[in-house]
């Protein structure tokens, strides 16, 4: 049994790590801090976290956030709705189709399966700019540019990273279960829905979660495909808010940023375990 003792090395390391942690949170703290200040105090050279007087924090915050939410040209409520529509359709498609493809690549034996898997993995290396122009041309032919469709339809064709991750997960499910199900008269579809999906809920949740974050963050996609302000997503809306004619005051810009960031941070706090486990799993399989 070891007794607790003071170790100078550990203490120094802990302090250093806390300092680093502070450096990483500081930009977000400053964002929130600026977002609750009056414009004059935001644009000042003094470093202070709360507005002066501190008692004005809440009313000032309410004023700033209301101003952002009800801005007449940049309609954040609408952009939130658009983002959620894309996110729902896209997450559903990505999770389902990646799972189906991963099932085919892990539980069914067929000629060319290995080659197909290799091609799927290779697509992870293709930079998006290579696909950008032709996808734009294709969606133009389809008449989809300017609508939300280009942002969620491709998700229904799976994503290489997710297929890869789910395939690894499915491989870990005992084959005997399939055989038992087959004896009970189930086909592939039955096995997929009644055995694989229920057993893979944690992995599917990670795929859904990551894809949700991806959609929420995506900037270049909406920038290319969306042409009307009414169809913008939050990421694009924030950029519009920043760049619109006549400088947007910093305090309002930070309030808008906070609104875009906050849902993801909350999602992280609620689901922290899944995020970290998922990332460790993805990165380690190289």
């Amino acid at each position: 049994m070891k007794k607790w003792e003071f170790k100078p090395g550990v203490a120094v390391l802990s302090v250093a790590m806390l300092a680093i942690a502070l450096a990483f949170v500081m930009p977000l703290l400053w964002m929130i801090s600026t977002s609750v200040k009056p414009e004059k105090q935001a644009a000042s050279q003094a470093i202070r976290l709360l507005p002066d007087p501190a008692s004005s924090t809440l009313p000032q915050a309410a004023e700033n956030y209301t101003a952002v939410w009800h801005d007449s040209t940049v309609q954040f409520p609408l952009y939130l709705r658009n983002t959620l529509i894309v996110a729902m359709l896209s997450v559903a498609g990505m999770t389902l189709s990646s799972a189906v493809v991963a099932y085919g690549l892990s539980r069914i034996r067929w000629k060319g399966r290995g080659a197909m898997f290799a091609i799927t993995l290779a697509t992870m290396m293709i930079p998006f700019p290579v696909l950008m122009v032709p996808l734009f041309a294709i969606f133009k032919q389809l008449g989809w540019n300017g609508t939300l469709a280009p942002l969620w339809v491709p998700a229904w064709f799976g994503g290489a990273f997710n297929i890869f991750m789910l395939r690894q997960f499915f491989m870990g499910i005992p084959k005997e279960l399939d055989e038992a199900a087959r004896i009970d008269g189930m086909g592939h579809w039955g096995i997929f829905w009644r055995i694989i999906v229920p057993l893979s809920k944690p992995a599917l949740a990670v795929v859904a979660l990551f894809h949700f974050v991806y959609v929420w963050n995506d900037f270049i996609g909406p920038l290319i495909y969306l042409h009307h302000r009414d169809t913008y997503t939050l990421a694009l809306g924030l950029q519009l808010y920043q760049s619109q004619a006549g400088q947007t005051p910093w305090n309002l810009l930070m309030a808008a940023s906070t609104l875009v960031v906050l849902p993801l941070v909350l999602l992280f706090i609620v689901t922290q375990g899944s995020f970290v486990r998922g990332i460790s799993a993805e990165g380690l399989k190289g």
Binding site: F24, V25, P27, L28, V213, W216, N217, F219, L234, A235, L236, L238, Q239, S257, V260, V261, L264, V265, L267, F268
Partner: peptide, 9 residues
């Protein structure tokens, strides 16, 4: 946490 912050933000 910063990795969750959208690139635009």
């Amino acid at each position: 946490i910063p990795t969750l912050v959208p690139m635009v933000a």
